[in-house]
């Protein structure tokens, strides 16, 4: 029985990712001992939470069976509008609220276009990628505005001894949404919708509502994460979050989220995001040309998916053989 439990644990994709994570961490540590210094961990974990939050949103949306390529643009648009609104005299907290609502609205529009017109979310959100990026540049009004210091940025990014406040925000998001996805009935509907939309709707689940919820959540989290980055850098940049959409899909996929929906965990998405950031840092610390980061990331994606596919095929075969006995 113990053997059986170990096996069922090993076939979980996020466990494989975690093992990969440990191996890579040890490898880079051997290459350069300072890789795991408090100083380096402080640097890497200072920027990671922003990516974790986006990856969590993407992972939940992908589990429901849809994509969002607009997260990188929303990541820039939301904080840019917040800053510009404060410059126009909007009270800081109200500006934060309105800014986050823009993330919600973009998510809603993504969902509406995808579900109402029955087109692939890949296309709907690809369009939104360009639209939201363009809006950000327009909102920048030519030159990036200064960061208004009346915004309560310390609350989100204060640097503690080792970690920033943003990490605790990311962990809070992961915890709350982890409970939602893995323990609540809503989570069950999300998995069912992504696993087989027809079966889910024949069981009375309103699959379009479920997907819409995931689109909105994803847009909201992308905006929230973008806000944190701007608060950390104390500079709203129109180029912020460039290519983030692919990186967050990469994080989710490395963490065991299926491209076809119905499979994945919050834990996996977080580990995927952390892994990517440490990979980047490790390559620099090992004095490898930083241009190799993308090659490393690419290899990691392919290895992770090939490995997970292999494992899940084996698991299915073992199960079916057992059933025949």
């Amino acid at each position: 029985m113990k053997n059986l439990n170990l096996k069922s644990l090993l076939v979980r994709p996020e466990v494989a990712t975690f093992i990969m994570f440990v191996v890579i961490m040890i490898g880079f540590y051997l290459a350069n001992e300072r890789f795991l210094d408090a100083r380096n961990i402080r640097i890497v974990m200072g920027i990671t939470p922003e990516y974790m939050i986006v990856a969590i949103g993407i992972a939940i949306l992908m589990i429901s069976g849809e994509f969002d390529l607009s997260v990188g643009s929303v990541f820039a648009l939301v904080p840019m509008t917040m800053v510009q609104m404060v410059h126009q005299g909007v009270p800081p907290w109200f500006a934060i609220f309105l800014g986050l609502m823009i993330g919600v609205i973009v998510g809603f529009v993504n969902g509406f276009i995808t579900l109402r017109f029955g087109i692939p979310s890949f296309i709907a959100t690809l369009g939104m990628l360009y639209i939201a990026r363009s809006l950000t540049t327009v909102a920048t009004a030519g030159f990036p505005p200064p960061f208004p210091h009346i915004l309560p940025n310390e609350l989100f990014v204060y640097q503690f001894e080792l970690f920033r406040a943003s990490l605790y925000w990311a962990l809070l998001v992961a915890f709350v949404l982890g409970i939602m996805l893995h323990r609540s009935n809503v989570g069950n509907w999300i998995y069912a919708t992504g696993g087989d939309t027809n079966a889910a709707s024949s069981m009375g689940i309103k699959t379009n509502n479920v997907k819409m919820f995931c689109f909105i959540l994803c847009g909201f989290l992308a905006g929230f994460a973008g806000m944190i980055q701007t608060f950390r850098l104390e500079a709203p940049l129109p180029s912020q979050g460039y290519l983030l959409e692919l990186e967050s899909i990469a994080a989710a996929v490395i963490g065991g989220v299926s491209l076809f929906g119905g499979i994945g965990t919050i834990f996996g998405a977080c580990i995927g995001a952390i892994l990517i950031r440490f990979l980047e840092s490790g390559i620099i610390m090992a004095r490898i040309d930083a241009e190799w980061f993308r090659a490393g990331l690419g290899s990691l994606i392919i290895i992770a998916v090939v490995f997970n596919t292999y494992i899940s095929r084996r698991a299915t075969r073992i199960g079916q053989n057992k059933a025949k006995d």
Binding site: G195, D196, A199, A200, S202, G262, I263
Partner: peptide
């Protein structure tokens, strides 16, 4: 016929 259960669940 085809869609009564979610395979991965």
């Amino acid at each position: 016929q085809y869609s009564a259960l979610i395979p991965e669940m």
